[in-house]
Design a protein around this nucleic acid. Structure first.
Lengths: 168, 168
DNA sequence: AATATCTTTCAATAAATATTGAAAGTTTGA
DNA sequence: TCAAACTTTCAATATTTATTGAAAGATATT
């Protein structure tokens, strides 16, 4: 396979995977493009390579920066902004985990905690089943949360630090 | 909080979480409804409780069955079909992991393997960066795949079997 | 074999999401 | 201060995804 074709396929696949996991297709594609670019790219270059509009490119790049996956670069003597993606996959994975934990897991945990306080008749099967399900999900979600917390602090921890090096 | 309100909030939250993770909101809501129902429900009951159409209820329930999260029940003397959700959260998590692995992770792994075979000039930074990124992602994805594989076989394995009981 | 009961399908429609592009905003330097 | 170079915004539009509901398909009952 030629490089040009491989790049194309990689970008498409990354976009598809993103959309299957609730991440905007274009955002995933821009990320893919930057991932495989040795140099930082300008908005113009992203627009051209992916055939997207200026507005879309601008918003998508901003989102990627908010996700902590891309950073702006400035070059002396130039007005244009350049965009560069973090290339270490483990750092990327940690970053994504961190953001999704914060944006999605934590709000759910908060609600589950409240729902566990529901009042009702202990003899009512409706009540019993509700309470059991919510409690069980809360337990699992808390464990996932704690596990992620540990993972995210892995670098600071000799034990997991060494385990996670195996994944690198 | 009253049970009725709590149920409503739970169903909404589950639907929202699902849609953030690429799972149809209605599917997640139907799943939530069945999760907190002590008894199996009919299509009619699902339609009424969630205010959705017959077609939607039918397709959604079929999808949930395909995900291995819900099963049909038949009752003697009745023509209607009843639907019942698996309640053990660890089993649910395993089931979801299994399906997403099969539907999304495995196809991506296959492609990454092919992309690693890309031909090009070893001196070309474009080629180098592409190859490094693809290889690194492939490594991480393979490790995730293997880890999931182990998890999915956990019940058959005394060591992880006992570890995972901690999560229940 | 006709009818009642229940399930499935799928083209049409609606709703949610993503994208465009032109105008407004900002920054730099002549 | 002006204007060129670049970035940002957002209402309008397009695309994608989900939902409806009526008709067709099953299956059991008389």
């Amino acid at each position: 396979m030629e490089l040009a074709e491989a790049k194309q396929k990689f970008i498409e696949a990354w976009g598809k995977l993103g959309s299957e996991w609730g991440i905007n297709r274009t955002m995933a594609q821009v990320h893919a493009l930057l991932l495989i670019s040795p140099e930082a790219l300008t908005t113009e270059q992203v627009m051209e390579q992916l055939q997207i509009s200026r507005g879309n490119a601008n918003m998508t790049l901003r989102d990627l920066i908010n996700w902590g996956l891309v950073e702006k670069q400035h070059r002396s003597g130039e007005r244009k902004e350049y965009f560069f993606a973090e290339k270490d996959v483990w750092t990327i994975a940690r970053q994504v985990a961190k953001e999704r934990k914060r944006r999605e897991l934590e709000p759910v945990l908060k609600l589950l905690g409240q729902l566990q306080e529901v009042q009702g008749d202990e003899q009512d099967p409706e009540y019993q089943t509700f309470k059991t399900s919510v409690t069980d999900i809360n337990k699992l979600a808390s464990n996932v949360d704690k596990t992620l917390e540990t993972m995210l602090k892995a670098e600071e921890n000799w034990f997991f630090g060494s385990i996670f090096k195996l994944f690198k």
